[in-house]
Structures are given as C-alpha cells and as structure tokens.
Simulated scan of single mutants.
Amino acid sequence: NEKINYKVREHSLAKVPALLVVGKREAEEGTVAVRRLGSQGQEIVSLDEIVARLVKEATPPDLA
C-alpha cells in the first residue's frame, strides 16, 4: 500500500538504473513510464520500444 512516489524514491536511493512504472493510464495505452537513474524526468514509451532498448542495453558488445 505504499505510495508510488515513496517507491520511486527508495529505488532511486538504492541506485536502480531504470524504473519502469505502469499505472492505469499506461496499461490502457500500452505504454511505460521510464525513469533513469540521475534523470529528473520520465519518458513515456511504448512497451515494444522499451523492451527493444533494454535488450540492446543488456546484450554484451561481443554478442551484438
């Protein structure tokens, strides 16, 4: 039952590199709010786009 802002703050202090937030609106639209470590704002992207970005970031250079 924690508030979303509390969860975002706790994970920011834990230095989680990327937070993906899906609320009611995002679920209806098929989007995700992305908050990056060190960034003040958030970016709204499609689910397919964020999956592709995260796969690319997680792939080691020798396998790319």
Results as ranks from 00 to 15, higher is better:
N1S: 13
N1Q: 10
N1L: 05
E2K: 06
E2I: 03
E2H: 07
E2G: 03
N5Q: 13
K7H: 14
K7M: 03
R9C: 09
E10G: 13
H11T: 06
S12W: 03
S12P: 08
L13Q: 10
L13N: 11
K15N: 01
P17G: 03
A18G: 11
A18R: 00
L20V: 09
L20E: 09
V21G: 07
V21T: 03
V22I: 15
G23M: 13
G23D: 07
K24L: 15
R25E: 03
E26C: 15
E29H: 12
G30F: 13
V34D: 02
R35F: 00
G38R: 00
G38A: 14
S39L: 09
S39M: 12
Q40W: 04
G41W: 04
Q42L: 09
E43R: 14
E43W: 09
E43N: 06
E43M: 14
V45H: 12
V45D: 13
S46I: 07
S46A: 15
D48R: 12
I50T: 15
V51K: 09
V51A: 14
V51L: 11
V51P: 05
A52V: 04
A52R: 05
R53W: 03
R53Q: 09
L54G: 03
L54Y: 03
V55Q: 02
K56Y: 01
K56V: 02
E57R: 00
A58Y: 06
A58K: 02
P60R: 15
P61L: 11
P61S: 12
L63Q: 14
L63I: 11
L63H: 08
A64F: 04
A64C: 01
